[in-house]
């Protein structure tokens, strides 16, 4: 066999993957193995594929993805902690023709910003809400989140989350699915190529609904890992997530076309 040179390898016909131009060249600030990077990329791929590069306004949260605007190559606003849905509400109402999305973590969306989340969904704001649930406050060093599992150790639940003390993990996604304002509510993951492909389809569906003027809020939870916060290797974190989080936060659609899926 003739020796293969780099030149041969990088020939266009050998291209198997290309980064979307809607991700900047800036090095991601996320820990290796973190789901945020994949979730960003899928979101931007969808925007690119839908041809909405120049018509999209995204809202970044406070959390590890606070710098999402450094990586997502569309017009972006950086919100105060928890307030992304309020920003997005106004943006969409003032620019109904544009595509508007929020990107938030569990502390941002389901603790400090619960009111903004519920009310934006309840008004049926025509926005896409992307919710990365890693069961912890990654950014601030691994404190308990509203979605932290029972028994899970975090820096503010050092003996494990105790329902009597801290309440139960919050299934905010099921909760907002109950609201008539939401039209498409789904729970996905991005830790395997197969899961990521599904998540991308879900994102695409959500953005398409907004572009096509389907009324209502679309909401995509991504159950994700936080190997740093969980103090695990990326691999262990993914395994732990599959074993412990997926049973409690089952993947799949919760509401489609405004109708709750029966089995959930």
């Amino acid at each position: 066999m003739a020796e293969l040179s780099v030149k041969d390898i990088i020939k266009p016909e050998n291209l198997v993957y290309e980064k979307t131009k809607l991700m900047t060249d800036k090095t991601l600030s996320y820990c290796p193995g973190c789901g945020h990077g994949t979730a960003h990329r899928l979101t931007m791929e969808v925007i690119e594929e839908l041809g909405k590069e120049n018509d999209t306004i995204g809202v970044a949260p406070v959390g590890c993805s606070v710098l999402a605007y450094e990586f997502m190559n569309v017009d972006m606003q950086e919100a105060a902690h928890g307030r992304a849905p309020a920003l997005a509400t106004a943006i969409k109402r003032l620019w109904p023709g544009k595509v508007v999305f929020t990107y938030q973590g569990d502390g941002d969306l389901a603790a400090i910003g619960t009111a903004e989340t519920i009310h934006a969904c309840n008004r049926g704001e025509n926005i896409v809400m992307i919710f990365v649930n890693n069961g912890i406050y990654g950014m601030t060093g691994g404190q308990m989140a509203p979605t932290t599992m029972i028994g899970m150790k975090t820096s503010t639940s050092p003996y494990g989350r105790d329902a009597a003390l801290n309440g139960h993990p919050l299934k905010i996604t099921e909760l907002i699915a109950q609201l008539p304002g939401t039209t498409y509510v789904t729970r996905q993951a991005v830790h395997t190529p197969a899961a990521a492909r599904k998540a991308k389809r879900a994102l695409k569906k959500a953005f398409e609904q907004q572009i096509n003027g389907v009324p209502g809020t679309t909401f995509i939870e991504i159950v994700s890992n936080c190997n740093s916060g969980w103090k695990m290797t990326p691999n262990d974190a993914n395994n732990w997530m599959e074993e412990n989080m997926f049973p409690f936060y089952p993947l799949g659609d919760i509401k489609v076309d405004g109708k709750l899926i029966e089995s959930k």
Partner: peptide, 9 residues
């Protein structure tokens, strides 16, 4: 925060 969003556009 709606002002932030709207004013920011």
């Amino acid at each position: 925060n709606m002002l932030y969003g709207g004013g920011g556009t």
